[in-house]
Design a binder for these strands. Structure first.
Length: 284
DNA sequence: ACCCAGGGTGACG
DNA sequence: CGTCACCATGGG
């Protein structure tokens, strides 16, 4: 992928990423749209702005090779989505999903932020998840300069909040899960090492945390820890998979496991295509 | 008033 | 192992 840094902006050429789809599919909750093609978000301690002009993706600010490497990884630029799409086209059912999700990317996000975000996502909807996370950042994060933007809270700042404060932000009954998980991370539970661990082992580890079941663990593994075979099974996916692969009948756990195994190393990416298809079709 | 939302937990068989 | 009520909260 060709790219260059010009005046503090990273430009990536011949890039077919669809920013709207990528930011609004429920994998990330903090990107705000300025226009249809310009979005902004706090990553780490910096306010990042990205825009799309034709086939050129621009990311600002980007000051050095280290920044560049971070963005290439964050936006998953080096993964060959065309290859995944070609694989999907060989399957009659999967091929119908491809047009509904062209240009999506699976972001490689900050693990702690992703973990807390998906604990909040349990039995919740995307709009309210975003609102709650924003409240959490304003309450416990750091203001960036004199802007209206805030960083995502550190494990310590969340662990230091009491349950009532966490509830007041809108986390509801998940408040103790958040406090407990933040405390575990603060005390040394290492998320980074899960990246290099076997998928099943990493999943078991995550599920030891309160508020983290199979689905939340898979989201964290897929959206922040590089496990592209993780296949989050939410209510949308269950409906879609049952209709697409099991003739409308409810599949058993074994049948689902076999299906996901059959999708291989990129099952998680394929999952995102199915998710987009299901939501745009309004599968019920 | 009722149901749903990118579910998880704990209790009970 | 599987099932199930319950868990806050806001929008349809």
């Amino acid at each position: 992928m060709k790219s260059e840094i010009v005046n503090g902006t990273l430009q990536i050429f011949d890039c077919d990423i669809d920013l709207y789809r990528t930011f609004n599919c429920g994998q990330a909750f903090r990107w705000k749209s300025i226009t249809d093609f310009i979005f902004t978000c706090v990553l780490g301690e910096k306010i990042i702005t990205v825009s799309k002009d034709g086939d050129t993706l621009s990311i600002f600010p980007c000051n050095d090779e280290e920044d560049k490497a971070f963005f290439i990884n964050y936006f998953d630029i080096n993964t060959d989505y065309k290859a995944v799409e070609n694989l999907m086209r060989k399957n009659e059912v999967l091929s119908t999903c491809v047009p509904y999700a062209k240009g999506i990317r699976i972001l490689n996000q900050a693990p702690f932020e992703t973990l807390i975000s998906f604990i909040i996502s349990a039995n919740n909807n995307i709009k309210r998840i975003s609102k709650t996370i924003n409240n959490l950042c304003v309450t416990a994060g750091e203001r960036i300069g004199d802007s209206e933007h805030f960083s995502f809270p550190t494990p310590k700042s969340l662990a230091d909040m009491n349950i009532d404060e966490l509830k007041q932000v809108g986390t509801g009954y998940r408040a103790p899960y958040i406090k407990d998980t933040a405390t575990k991370i603060l005390e040394g539970f290492c998320l980074e090492e899960l990246k290099h661990m076997d998928y099943c082992e990493a999943r078991k580890r995550l599920m030891q945390l309160k508020g983290v079941g199979a689905k939340v663990a898979d989201c964290v593994l897929l959206f922040s820890l590089g496990h592209t075979n993780a296949f989050p099974m939410d209510v949308w996916m269950k409906r879609a998979v049952n209709i697409m692969f099991f003739n409308g009948k409810q599949a058993s756990c074994d049948e689902l496991c076999n299906l996901i195994d059959g999708l291989g190393e990129n099952a998680g990416i394929i999952q995102q295509y199915i998710f987009h298809y299901a939501r745009q079709k309004g599968v019920k």
